[in-house]
Nucleic acid binder design. Structure first.
Length: 284
DNA sequence: GACCAGGTATTGC
DNA sequence: GCAATACATGGT
């Protein structure tokens, strides 16, 4: 604390490989990591904190102390893991994945808060990524605890459970509003125990979330992957459906299944940002 | 101003 | 069982 007082604007600098904040921000797994006012600057809100990030190439600066970085953000950005392992899994001849990794090789699978992931992905259904961001941000502003004058934490289950119906509906949730309400109630009344869920095996975990109204296999898979770091889980949305059908003959390569969640993220990102609908021709 | 979006629940056969 | 359909709203 003394150190914080003496250095209110502390910065932690480090070089990061296989890491790009731009790639992560656009990859559709996290909706509260957004570009700042200047180029190569980003603002993240997670774990009730604000983190400003800037970089020149692979030299990154984070608006926190080294100890905060080590205890929170290192894990959040999955920096303990060497992503070369995943990149080296490319099957020779899989030009699509190779191209996807060339395009967005700085992606990481974040360790986000399960509750935030659950609600964000309930909201995500039949919404575009920019529209999800808008809804989530409105939700935070309306019901989240204030961190500073323009930053709000993700609302707690209790806050959403008690949320005024009208105020909630002004967040653009549409028909998903009762789903959000019911998920909040489930956590508040103990029907859904996220701490306990984190200890169950992946199949059981997914099953647990699918009991919630408005949570099907895709949303439950996203929660397992992004909220519980189950890297073998493969969420299939409209983009991944197209990728699987047009690039892999209808089924995800079995060689990739162990880390399907990571590899699909490269694929999803590449397909969505390049609007790849049909089979594309890639040359070696 | 259509068209589509990191789907799911419900209905109809 | 499985295919078709409704669903709220915003971004492009």
């Amino acid at each position: 604390m003394a150190q914080d007082f003496c250095h209110p604007n502390h910065m932690y600098k480090t070089e990061l490989k296989n890491f790009s904040i731009e790639d992560i921000a656009s990859s559709g797994q996290c909706f509260r990591l957004v570009p700042g006012t200047k180029k190569a600057e980003f603002k993240l809100i997670a774990y009730g904190r604000v983190l400003n990030i800037s970089h020149v190439g692979s030299d990154y600066s984070f608006s926190c102390s080294k100890s905060e970085f080590d205890t929170i953000w290192q894990r959040y950005f999955d920096l303990e893991c060497d992503y070369e392992i995943y990149k080296n899994m490319i099957i020779p001849g899989d030009l699509f994945l190779r191209e996807a990794i060339r395009f967005g090789g700085g992606i990481r699978i974040l360790n986000q808060e399960p509750w935030e992931v659950l609600i964000s992905f309930i909201i995500s259904q039949r919404k575009s990524v920019p529209a999800i961001r808008t809804s989530v941000e409105r939700l935070c502003k309306a019901f989240g605890e204030s961190i500073d004058d323009q930053s709000y934490a993700f609302p707690t289950a209790k806050a959403l459970d008690q949320a005024d119906e009208k105020a909630l509906s002004s967040c653009g949730l549409g028909y998903r509003l009762p789903y959000v309400k019911k998920a909040a109630l489930a956590v508040v009344n103990g029907d859904l125990d996220l701490e306990k869920a984190s200890k169950s095996k992946t199949a059981k975990l997914i099953e647990t979330f699918m009991k919630l109204k408005g949570v099907g296999i895709k949303v439950a898979s996203c929660v397992a992957l992004f909220g519980f770091h189950r890297l073998d889980v493969l969420p299939v949305d409209v983009w991944m459906r197209r990728v699987i059908d047009t690039q892999y003959g209808g089924s995800f390569p079995k060689e990739y299944l162990k880390y399907a969640g990571v590899l699909q993220q490269y694929m999803y990102n590449y397909a969505r940002l390049n609007k790849i609908n049909g089979k594309i021709t890639l040359s070696s």
